[in-house]
């Protein structure tokens, strides 16, 4: 193969490409930044602690809310309530108001 003839026909080995001005300097700097160890800011170091605290506080808040709602929605059950009411009525029947006042004031009929 006659490379010389070929070169002349193809107008040499010039490339029709260029690069932006200062490209190689910027590229080298960019690579330096890419491989540099990343310094983590203080807030980034404290972030796991804050996250754990927030999760814990959230859990407590949700538990409290659930507990409060349950107490508000479900009526308090008291098996002895009818008995107590009946007993109160019996007592009330046995005393009228005046008697009760006398008893409370310590005077006998």
């Amino acid at each position: 193969m006659d490379e010389k003839v070929f070169d002349m026909e193809m107008r040499g080995r010039e490339l029709p490409f260029s690069v932006p001005e200062g490209y190689f300097e910027r590229f080298a700097e960019e690579m330096e930044r890419s491989i540099a160890p990343q310094k983590r800011p203080v807030w980034a170091l404290a972030r796991p602690i804050f996250t754990a605290a927030a999760v814990f506080a959230g859990l407590i808040a949700v538990s409290y809310l659930v507990f409060t709602l349950q107490r508000g929605i479900v009526p308090q059950t008291d098996d002895y309530m009818p008995v107590r009411q009946e007993y109160a009525e019996i007592i009330a029947d046995q005393f009228d108001v005046l008697q009760l006042e006398d008893i409370l004031s310590g005077e006998e009929e």
């Binding site: 490339l15 190689f24 590229f27 080298a28 690579m31 330096e32 491989i35 540099a36 160890p37």
Partner: peptide
Amino acid sequence: RAGAFSSLVRLTQERLYW
């Protein structure tokens, strides 16, 4: 390593780019 690699980039980038 990091410093040497930066030098390596500066020495080789142009030829590799083309």
